[in-house]
């Protein structure tokens, strides 16, 4: 699971964060390093979809918040992924 958009949504599910805080969080929970171009490509797309909301900037660093629609989308994606993971594990046990 290395889709930057899902990783950003998963990071924001914990709470509001600015760009570099997201990068550090993602590195910690997913062991994936996001470059600045990749991160802001995902942020731009997610904001356009209405899945994240920009907050007031603090010292030029702008935090983002997960919107209700974003939460719904993330839940849907995680459920689908969960099903894939469970199926794969079951099949691996029987193999």
């Amino acid at each position: 699971m290395t889709d930057p958009a899902i990783l950003v949504l998963a990071s924001l599910a914990e709470g509001d964060k600015h760009g570099y805080a997201m990068v550090l969080d993602i590195e910690r929970f997913a062991d994936v390093h996001l470059g600045p171009g990749t991160l802001y490509g995902a942020i731009t797309r997610l904001e356009q979809q209405g899945w994240i909301q920009p907050l007031e900037a603090e010292d030029r660093r702008r935090p983002y918040r997960l919107s209700a629609a974003g939460r719904g989308y993330l839940e849907e994606q995680v459920r689908s992924l969960d099903q894939v993971v469970k199926t794969a594990l079951r099949r691996l046990k029987h193999a």
Partner: peptide, 12 residues
């Protein structure tokens, strides 16, 4: 996004 992006680059 220019301002916040430049600020992010300073952290990298």
């Amino acid at each position: 996004y220019g301002d916040e992006f430049d600020a992010l680059l300073e952290d990298y």
